[in-house]
Design a protein around this nucleic acid. Sequence first.
DNA 1: CGCCCGCTTGAGACTCCTCAATCTTGGTGG
DNA 2: CCACCAAGATTGAGGAGTCTCAAGCGGGCG
Lengths: 243, 243
Amino acid sequence: MTGTQRNGGLWSDIDAVCELLGMPLGEAGRYGRVLFQHRSYRARQRICSAGEKFESLLVVNAGFLRTSQVDESGNEQVLGFPMRGDLVGVEGICAQTHHADTVALTACDVVILPFAQLRSLGHECADLSQVIYRAISRELVHEQSALGVIGTLTAEARVAHFLQELSGRYAALGYSPRRFMLHMTRRDLGSYLGVTLETVSRALSTMAEAGIIDVQKRAIIINDVAALAAISRHANRAKMRAN
Amino acid sequence: MTGTQRNGGLWSDIDAVCELLGMPLGEAGRYGRVLFQHRSYRARQRICSAGEKFESLLVVNAGFLRTSQVDESGNEQVLGFPMRGDLVGVEGICAQTHHADTVALTACDVVILPFAQLRSLGHECADLSQVIYRAISRELVHEQSALGVIGTLTAEARVAHFLQELSGRYAALGYSPRRFMLHMTRRDLGSYLGVTLETVSRALSTMAEAGIIDVQKRAIIINDVAALAAISRHANRAKMRAN
DNA sequence: CGCCCGCTTGAGACTCCTCAATCTTGGTGG
DNA sequence: CCACCAAGATTGAGGAGTCTCAAGCGGGCG
């Protein structure tokens, strides 16, 4: 667990935060005196709402979150499921106002990075500002990947792709890539993937029927990685461009 | 047209670039000595390819572009249609490698911002670094909006929404929001919206039939803004969350 | 203990995709 | 100069995939 005890709560220095982001600074200790406070949330607790003034970025230290936005006609779109190492709140920088809702799916612990403070630190350390830019860019890349999934794949392929990606994220954190939990409802997953909750349920059932995965509520076991990968490539529309 | 003649090509100072991004610095002239080179492209020319080393961000000064990515199984997904004032290439910061292809849909002119240079300028000027962060964040917000469109709306609503947004972008640049050109093919638009080119064509025909718009190839005239807005709200799935 | 919420499964309907034909337009070469 | 061809766009018919509506089942929380 990242962070050190102080004043009855967890705090992390900038080196620990970069480490958490997967982008270690290398010059450890140089900025060790600046500490960032952690904050903990219980499951189902709201962390941030659209319309609030933007002040801080968050880095997830532990637990699982869900970010979503609601458009002008009331349709909800789930944007992502941040977990340990993910940066949250970048959408707020643009207009100094949050555009998305963030809630805790499980008990979780996040590091609060007041953005003004982060920027001033970045002015002093080129490596740090590089880490910030890269972390923000990574969020954009992830969104673009999600666009590709939702825009080109069949419903079952979207679900398979999601399982693959989640498996990889767990593996990167040192957990089993074969046995893991979905911490979101079928409805949330459906919203994220652009399908209905029934379609998600059916896709999982179909793959379980074929023996590719085991599904016990939100517990997933992947039996056949290759078959899952094959399904996740099933394109719907959007053939290749002719060059 | 932004930029000043020098050495036979256009160059812009940092103030002009921020102005172009719609985020004026205010302290004009302070960094006027640093100039950024423009580059021009002809229609259908490739500006940047996935896999290339990332070195510079681009800001579009004139013309129309298309960015897209190709996933591991060869499916193409159009990510956006940058035009004047838009920032291009942010996805490259993350891994120092471009993830997307960028091509010119029309003749165009872009400002080249070598990212290392931009960062070092940002270290000297807090306002400038803020502009960079905001511009990058704005790209993320735009991607998220696209996710919402593709994830929740019917095919016709997606097309209507696209026309609305394009209309707004033209208006912001001082052009007519009622009469404008689509510079992309139906196939490109379909890929961007997650539908087939035939569906795009049918959606345009249906709205033209209803008198809401006029369509002459890629020339669009919007007759009934309110009706267009009404159609763009037609949700497919994804009802409101119960709180 | 009971109730609500989440999940599964089924049947029917509808949107959108697929395949195909036609038309226009712009570019190329005889 | 015109025939020819390729690429983009439109339109139609049919079918596949996914949504909608509905019922039933379990489990966690009050």
